[in-house]
């Protein structure tokens, strides 16, 4: 990592690093910097241009943050792939069945009077609460 004309220059080798990881790194910097990527045969060349004026140390910190996220992303993808059979076994049924809500109260459904009595009770409670304001 080096600073050239105010921009942070980084070179990352392929295939260890991929475009998705670089995108994750750029997202982590958000609106604080513009990130330009040039893809070569064996490596990516990255230029990070901070939007605001920063000291050299701050520029390096920004580059470090980018690198952290890229590395984190790449490593996470490996971990995710390695653990996929386990996590899929847990998550797939959860999302497949969705989050079923509690069905409507059968007593209220079967006995309209119960529903009406309860509605009146709630309405009384609301009245009492309003009188406190």
């Amino acid at each position: 990592m080096k600073i050239v004309k105010g921009a942070v220059h980084i070179k990352l080798g392929k295939p260890l690093y991929g475009a998705e990881g670089l995108a994750a790194g750029a997202l982590a910097l958000g609106a604080r910097a513009q990130v330009f990527v040039d893809e070569g045969k064996t490596a990516f060349s990255i230029e990070i241009h901070p939007v605001e004026a920063l000291s050299s140390a701050e520029r390096l910190a920004l580059g470090g943050e980018f690198l952290n996220e890229v590395l984190n992303h790449e490593y996470r993808q490996r971990v995710v792939r390695a653990n996929a059979p386990l996590t899929q076994a847990v998550f797939a049924p959860l999302f497949a069945r969705g989050f079923p809500a509690v069905p409507a109260d059968p007593l209220e459904e079967l006995e309209p009077q119960v529903k009406a009595d309860r509605a009146r009770e709630v309405s009384d409670l609301l009245e009492q609460a309003r009188s406190m304001t």
Binding site: R76, N83, F91
Partner: peptide
């Protein structure tokens, strides 16, 4: 958030 909650999806947490 659910995917990010799972330690098996996190490098060091795993």
């Amino acid at each position: 958030v659910v995917a990010a909650s799972h330690p098996d999806n996190q490098p060091l947490c795993a």
